[in-house]
Write a protein that binds this DNA or RNA. Structure first.
Lengths: 245, 245
DNA sequence: CGACATGTTGAACCTCATCAACCGACGTGG
DNA sequence: CCACGTCGGTTGATGAGGTTCAACATGTCG
């Protein structure tokens, strides 16, 4: 006859919506997670708000809980390039550096789970598993960044826009698991960026982006619901247009 | 009165020329380095030889001792993009992955210090310092990759070629230290890439690269010694032309 | 309802790609 | 020894893809 174990409060992190995909997923729910919970806080940002500037020191790091963040770099004369997008469960911040090498700006209202820089690095030392987890995330970010170098260096405007829509659609569908296989069926895709932001991400102008979206629509590869939302009848057909390497 | 400590052979790694800049610099010379030395071997590659293919599993990882390596990605229709260059002391290989996401190809004769994938990952577990060191290298690689995204997305052909020459010159000058400050004086710059390779790195064609080098020469920013070597009268002037962000 | 930001469309222009000829260095074989 | 082919590089002519500039449409919010 079993005796029910005593119910232990594992702290606020236990029921966090993004935990199964964030770097903290490797921590033990009962022994380690509550310990980490002591160091983190939540914070909200309005759309358009600067979360980190390339001027400021890195004073905190953390995980995106809700909303979308753009990482942006700017040249002296004002030319800009978006280096990456962060969605819920993604990690935000440059570890092991005094200064952020780029801007982080909220595209929508953002909710962030963060720790002060000093205590964050202490957490990394306390939980080597956490550092390994962040290391693996960093390796993935490097892969994505290099994938985008291919896009910026070699793809046509058409391919770039198609690639971008594929990226959004795949992130919004969530990671592929055994019980949720990759479907090719029609799926809705929210676009949390302005045409100008898309252009900055793709190394184009917003006029070119606008025209290319028009052509993808004419080709039947996408069905615009509004300027900020499209339906993708067949993801694989769109992927084709993106010339996935 | 002191007694001289017994001389202990610290193994072959102790006098390695790149150790002070490679990931293994964090290991203790007497306790840890000899342990690691047991797992590594050296290997040579001829110019043009494929070191890793994006088809093959990652069977080994290591550090470049001599020569230059290009990391390259290829699209289905043959379009290519160089994702990065590796110089002596740089780390080669994608940790924590079954398959390499790109090609690694020797541009010159290359000497590599490597470990089998399984034993390499065992080393990372044995020496957490080593993992942290590799993690920091990965973060730097990510910074460089994003820097290059700016170049590929927003810079003109002229700026790209100038940026490339600055990159080479700075790497060949070695890291800036207190006793070796960054000088602006004339410096020679070896170019271990063909015009075609440079083009692949910069997202251009080799014709455009050739013309831009010609214009930089006409502008007095570089003085060609041969097709594979230039003198840079003033690095800061060249940096100016690169529109460094 | 009007104002301002966001997005679309049109026309002219420009940078860079494409295609092609040519050059020089090198290595090979007759 | 020299003709020949190959490879890397340069130079020229032409054109396309994307930018730029400008007008106009849409949509959102006070």
């Amino acid at each position: 006859m079993n005796i029910a174990p005593p119910v232990i409060d594992a702290g606020p992190c236990q029921h966090c919506g993004v935990r199964k995909n964030a770097i903290c997923r490797v921590l033990d729910v009962h022994r380690e997670l509550p310990e980490m919970a002591k160091s983190v806080r939540h914070r909200h940002y309005a759309a358009g708000q600067v979360i980190m500037s390339d001027q400021d020191p890195v004073s905190f790091l953390g995980t995106v809980l809700e909303g979308t963040v753009k990482l942006e770099k700017m040249m002296g004369d004002g030319r800009k390039q978006i280096l990456g997008l962060l969605f819920p469960s993604d990690f935000l911040g440059r570890a092991h550096a005094r200064q952020s090498p780029y801007y982080a700006i909220a595209l929508e209202p953002v909710k962030l789970c963060y720790a002060e820089a000093a205590s964050f690095h202490r957490l990394l030392e306390t939980f080597p598993k956490l550092e390994t987890s962040l290391f693996e995330r960093t390796l993935e970010a490097l892969d994505h960044s290099r994938e985008w170098m291919m896009l910026l260096g070699r793809k046509t405007a058409r391919e770039r826009v198609a690639s971008f829509l594929c990226l959004l659609a795949e992130r919004q569908a969530g990671p592929v698991t055994d019980d949720k296989p990759a479907s090719d069926g029609p799926l809705v895709c929210r676009i949390p960026l302005t045409r100008g932001d898309i252009a900055e991400f793709l190394g184009l102008t917003m006029e070119t982006v606008s025209r290319q979206i028009g052509e993808l629509k004419a080709a039947g590869l996408i069905v615009p619901e509004s300027t900020r939302q499209v339906t993708i009848p067949s993801l694989s057909a769109l992927r084709e247009a993106a010339e996935k390497a």
